[in-house]
Simulated scan of single mutants.
Amino acid sequence: MKTLLKKARELKNLKTREVAQLLGIDQALISKFESGSRKPTKDQVTKLAKLLEIDLETIMVSWLKEKIIHEIGQDEFALKALRAAEEEIKLNSILPVKKVSTLLQKILDEIDFIKSKLKTFSQIKTSSITQALEVEYTFCSNWMEGNTLSLEETDLVINEGQTISGKSMREHLEAINHQEAIEFIKNRIQNNEALLEKEIVSLHSIILRGILPKEAGQYRAVAITIKDKSFNPCDPAAIPQEVEALFNWYEGNKNKIHPIILAATVKERFLTIHPFINGNGKVSRLIMNSILLQHGYLVASIKADNDNRNLYYQALKGAITKENKDDFILFVAQIEKQSLEHYIETVSQ
C-alpha cells in the first residue's frame, strides 16, 4: 500500500506537506504511511483515496491485506484461520440481517403473545402433552421422508416397544432413532450446552444408526448432483468449514435475531451446504427445532399431508435458490404458531 500511496501522490504532483494540509493530517504521518512504518486508519485511507484518486476497492483490499498479515501473518495457524474466516465472511454476506416484513412481524408478535401463556401451565399438567407432540413430530418428520408408520403405530413403537406387522425394520428404526435424537437435543438444552458442528454430526449418527451405518455421522466425501439444477451443494472439501461458519454465525446472532427467523435461516443454510448423503432433511428440521426449544418455543412440526409438504418444499426451494427467503421464514412462523395454538387449546381442556 505504501507504494500505491506514493505513486498516486507523485502523479498528482503533490508534496507530502500539501497532502497533509488538504486532509488535516500531520505531515509526519503521511511520510510514515508512504514508508510503511505506520498504518493509516480506515477513515484516513478513505480520505487519501478520494484526494489522490485511487480506486477505493483497490486501496481498501491492500489496506485490509496488510492489516491481516500484521495481526496473524507469522502464526502457525494463520492459513487455517484465514480459510475459516473466509467461509464466515461469505456466510455473513449471504445471511444479512434485514428488516422483517409487516406480515411476518405481525405473526411473530402473535407467536410471542401465545408463547407467554405457556408459563401459566404447570409442568405436571403439560408433560404428557409435550410427549405426545414429540411423537407427532417424529411421525410427521419421518412421513416427509417416506416412512409409512401411522401416528398410532409410531407411538406404539416408541413408547411400547412394539413391532408393527408389515412394516420394515428400517421404518421401526427411523421412529426410534428420531425420538432418541429429540432426547439428545433436550439433554443438551437442559445442560445449557451450545449447538456446535460436532453435535450436528452426533445427530446424524443417531438418525442413521442401524440404517446406514457406513454413512452415519460422516460428511459426504463426493460431490452430488441434485435434480434441480438451481441448487448446487457445496464442494465436499469445504463442508466442515461451511458448517462451522454457519454455527459461528448462529452464535454471533442468536441474541440479535428473532428465534423464528434464526431457526428458519440456519435450517435453510444447512440444506444449502447439504453435508450428508442422506438424512439432511431430518437433521435440518432437528436443528431448527433445537433452536426453537432453546429459546422456549415448541417443536414446529410440518403436518403430514400433501398440501403442507408441497408448501414446505416450495418455500424451501425458493429460499435455497435465493429467489425468496421470506416465504420460508413465514412458513416456519406459521407452523410454530399452529403448534402453540394447538398446545394451548389441548392443555386448557
Score class of each variant (00 low, 15 high):
Ser101Tyr: 05
Thr102Phe: 15
Thr102Ile: 15
Leu104Phe: 06
Ile107Asp: 12
Ile111Thr: 04
Lys115Tyr: 02
Lys115Phe: 00
Lys119Leu: 04
Phe121Pro: 01
Ser122Pro: 00
Gln123Phe: 09
Gln123Cys: 01
Gln123Asn: 09
Ser127Gly: 00
Ser127Cys: 01
Ser128Ile: 00
Ser128Arg: 00
Ile129Gly: 01
Thr130Gln: 03
Gln131Trp: 09
Gln131Met: 04
Leu133His: 07
Leu133Ser: 08
Glu134Lys: 12
Glu134Val: 00
Val135Cys: 06
Glu136Phe: 06
Tyr137Thr: 06
Thr138Tyr: 00
Thr138Gly: 03
Cys140Asn: 12
Asn142Lys: 07
Gly146Arg: 07
Thr148His: 03
Leu149Cys: 06
Leu149Phe: 02
Glu152Ser: 04
Asp155Thr: 02
Val157His: 01
Val157Trp: 02
Ile158Asn: 02
Asn159Arg: 10
Asn159Val: 07
Asn159Ser: 10
Glu160Val: 05
Gly161Arg: 11
Ile164Trp: 02
Ser165Pro: 02
Lys167Ile: 00
Lys167Thr: 01
Lys167Ala: 07
Met169Ile: 11
Met169Tyr: 13
Arg170Phe: 07
Arg170Glu: 11
His172Arg: 03
His172Ser: 08
His172Met: 08
Leu173Gln: 09
Leu173Thr: 03
Glu174Gln: 09
Ala175Ile: 12
Asn177Lys: 09
Asn177Val: 11
His178Met: 12
Gln179Leu: 13
Ala181Gly: 11
Ala181His: 04
Ala181Arg: 08
Ile182Ala: 10
Lys186Tyr: 13
Lys186Ala: 08
Asn191Cys: 13
Asn191Thr: 15
Asn191Leu: 15
Asn191Lys: 15
Glu193Ser: 15
Ala194Gly: 10
Ala194Asn: 14
Glu197Pro: 14
Lys198Met: 13
Ile200Ala: 12
Ser202Gly: 13
Ser202Leu: 14
His204Gly: 10
His204Met: 12
His204Pro: 11
Ser205Arg: 14
Ser205His: 14
Leu208Lys: 10
Arg209His: 14
